[in-house]
Design a protein around this nucleic acid. Structure first.
Lengths: 192, 192, 192, 192
DNA sequence: TATGAATGAGGGTTCATTCAT
DNA sequence: GATGAATGAACCCTCATTCAT
């Protein structure tokens, strides 16, 4: 059944994501993923050609979600400050799902394996670049409309995106924050 | 000779750091480290009991440097804003060396391996906590003295420290210009 | 329908033979056989209990054909030299089909797998022995009738049968031969 | 010690040869080779990069021996019939060792694995061709000198070389008697 | 002390065979 | 009967660690 196949693939991805986040790419074994997903090891290879492809699939998926959010917000007819604010809010509302994205966004992950690099170059890097471009556009617009001070829009993009990641550290440090304060700090910091 | 032993150990650490940063912990093999350091594989085990211990040693070393800087700055009889500014400057002046620290500070790295976790708990976590405490103290002082707005000092610490990492994300980072701007953004963002 | 079952079985055997010859027993996967035969993998197991049984079936089939030819020729009321000549001719006329036989006749193939040996012992070896006996009979008769020199008939059988195999190498070495010369060489070599 | 390394490599090759001959390439596992050679599995990989390379090494080695013999005989100032005779004799005298060569010379072995084919093309085929050329030269010379009937020298080469293999087919082969007869049959068959 | 060959547990992947539909 | 997804044993190979020299 079509449903079933999709379900199993989803299960593999979900289990793998959990383990990749918890233990990292290398310490996670295909065996464990299979066991956790309650399927046979060989079954995984019916859905993904390699362990790396599971990782890449997750990576791409996360990036796709990010791009969609940014795309949507960018085209809204509102003030760029408002856009940044919306992205912050959206990010927080999806923070659990996003957790994955953040973990996959770290530079470390780009060094996973020699074999993976080519694929990353081809499939992942363009998406990361897309994300940066989208954010940069928003900042460029904001600077043009005098909503933000005249900083380099690339710098603002990097800071902003990295700040989103910061939010994921909150639980570890027992910070009870809805993101309002972080947003405020950032917007005040870059205001004209 | 005492000198020799120290020199070899240093060489191993230096080579290992380079490779860990470039390829990550797992893809780096002890064989490669030995080859790069121009010593025999067995020799490495005369200086470090395991591959992980090399990693941990580097990690601790980085943290120690960070703690020393913070300690020094914290005790200076200057405005907290000035302290934060100094830390920023110090960080930028050491940005190349710091690159290593940043790479070790990521959350991913804490999940290196099941075996390593206990050691991290015992030796690394206290140091990370120390760093956060030192920074938090500075912010607490700044809030008290009305230099900073009344945000949660934990929040400010996390944001600040994570921001330092941001600086390392772009190889094309223009230290003088971007560093100054980054500092400006943060200080403006948290000012009263 | 009876016809259908037989057709499918034949298709499997034909496809498998091609692949076994082209790639060998182990590199040929059941998956590939199924795909080439345009049936499902599971279907193959409705016709053959194991991959090895496909191989064995082919083997036996080839041997059966060989036995039939030899049987027929042996009983003809002609000179043994003529019999050998006829076998040669028949072999050449069937050389394309026989190609399979030759490939299956090599000793290598008898070592396919530990599991297969018992079956070979039981089902294949008797047939191979039968072939040798038939040929040996012809030579024995020829020696008796002074058509051939008094060599050991077993030796002659081995040489003769192996010589048939030789013809299969001709294409590889771009030898344009109708077998006339080879036959001549052999018959002259063994003549009285 | 240099001696030791050579000894281990030799041991691996010897054990591997035995097993390849007995069971074939695929059914022979690296594990078994290691066990038989009384070394650890990993050790094998210190001497050979892959299982296939062990096979190829053996293959090449055998061919090299064959080429050397042929080379030597070819350059002798004797009648071509004598040369063929000598090769026969040499072959019989080395029949035990030769057994390996024969087993490696079968066409089947050329189809070992997709990966191996390129290597075979590059390293093995030239040697096989060399062997054929050397033999062909001897026959060409013999035909020219009217020692052999005017058959295609390529045909004679293939038949002759394949005939050498024949000698290995029967474990019960009586070298002295049968070898002499085989030689006689061939030489008589091709004589003028 | 330094070496690097030897070890063997463990991992990713394949594929003959089974089984639910 | 036919299908092809699921299974899991088995294989090749890697690499952290040990150990004889």
């Amino acid at each position: 059944m079509k449903k079933d196949r999709e379900k199993i693939k989803e299960k593999i991805l979900q289990v793998a994501e959990e383990m990749f986040i918890k233990k990292g790419f290398f310490p996670t074994t295909v065996d464990e993923i299979a066991k956790q997903a309650k399927i046979a090891k060989g079954t995984i290879y019916l859905y993904f050609p390699t362990k790396e492809s599971i990782y890449l699939t997750l990576f791409e998926e996360k990036l796709k979600i990010g791009i969609e959010i940014l795309q949507k917000v960018k085209n809204m007819p509102i003030d760029p400050r408002e856009k940044i604010s919306l992205i912050f809010d959206d990010w927080f509302s999806k923070i659990k799902k996003a957790k994955g994205l953040a973990n996959f966004l770290t530079l470390e992950n780009i060094n996973i394996s020699p074999k993976i690099i080519l694929l990353l170059r081809k499939k992942i890097h363009p998406k990361i670049r897309k994300i940066f471009l989208l954010v940069k556009e928003i900042f460029r617009e904001g600077i043009e409309k005098k909503s933000f001070k005249n900083y380099d829009s690339k710098l603002l993009s990097v800071v902003f995106l990295h700040l989103l990641q910061t939010t994921l550290l909150f639980p570890s440090f027992n910070i009870k924050e809805d993101g309002k304060n972080l947003k405020e700090i950032f917007l005040k910091g870059v205001e004209r």
